[in-house]
């Protein structure tokens, strides 16, 4: 039990939320550092060297998005932003500025931990996970093989590329733009209908109930996320 867990920097001006995060994260073995403003975050980060940052967008002294940008100038530490409902453009801007994921308030402890795990996994991995398993779905990147309940699933190359990027970022949100840029190229960044069509096709092929997706989750207004087990 003396394993030192990952270091988390919590940036939020609300004391109650900081307290809740500290309790929940410490119970899971994280080491938690708390600050209450953007400036403090920037200074403390260089001292304590966190493995992941949880950043509230509604900070009193600086715009959260500016904090993300400033961080990104210096480091690649994963940043999860906390946002409120109704500010989709804030979320997208933050993700475009370099944040890795987001949580919408109010969120449950489970969601929080899932996000943390998903975003920490990337950095701590020495080799990329090449096989993704969730329930009946298996995606083997080395063999380019996708199976659902032991049945092979035939995907078009585009669908496979789409699934691949979701898998490599499993558990993390990917914005529409990111997906379009990665799979189709930067000229297609605005072609949302292509993305939707392909996601829909993909869902029809790998989801048991395409109308109630269990794997490819819609993040409304932002993008998509592949749910992990």
């Amino acid at each position: 039990m003396s394993e030192i867990g990952p270091r988390v920097l919590v940036v939020d001006d609300e004391q109650a939320i900081r307290k809740f995060l500290r309790v929940a994260l410490t119970a899971q073995g994280f080491m938690v550092f708390e600050v209450s403003s953007g400036l403090e975050a920037l200074t403390t980060a260089s001292n304590c060297k966190p493995d992941i940052i949880i950043l509230d967008l509604g900070l009193p002294d600086m715009d959260g998005i500016d904090v993300v940008r400033l961080f990104r100038q210096a480091t690649k530490i994963p940043i999860i932003i906390l946002s409120v409902r109704g500010s989709e453009d804030d979320k997208i801007n933050a993700l475009d500025a370099g944040a890795d994921d987001y949580l919408t308030k109010p969120f449950s402890a489970g969601e929080l931990l899932a996000r943390l795990r998903a975003n920490l996994r990337r950095t701590s991995q020495t080799e990329t996970e090449l096989v993704f398993i969730n329930g009946d779905l298996t995606v083997d990147l080395t063999k380019r093989l996708v199976t659902l309940a032991n049945h092979d699933v035939q995907l078009t190359p585009t669908e496979y590329d789409l699934l691949k990027i979701l898998v490599t970022h499993a558990g993390k949100v990917l914005t529409h733009h990111q997906l379009l840029k990665e799979v189709w190229g930067s000229e297609y960044e605005q072609e949302l209908h292509i993305l939707h069509v392909n996601i829909s096709n993909l869902r029809h092929k790998i989801e048991p109930d395409p109308t109630r997706p269990r794997f490819i989750i819609t993040e409304p207004g932002v993008g998509y996320r592949l749910r992990t087990a």
């Binding site: 989709e88 453009d89 529409h176 949302l192 209908h193 939707h196 996601i199 829909s200 869902r203 395409p210 109308t211 109630r212 997706p213 989750i217 819609t218 409304p220 207004g221």
Partner: peptide, 17 residues
């Protein structure tokens, strides 16, 4: 309104979620 071209299936799925 923050309009984006959206897929109805997506929306229904998210609502059910």
């Amino acid at each position: 309104l923050f309009r984006q071209p959206a897929d109805m299936q997506d929306i229904v799925g998210a609502a059910l979620e």
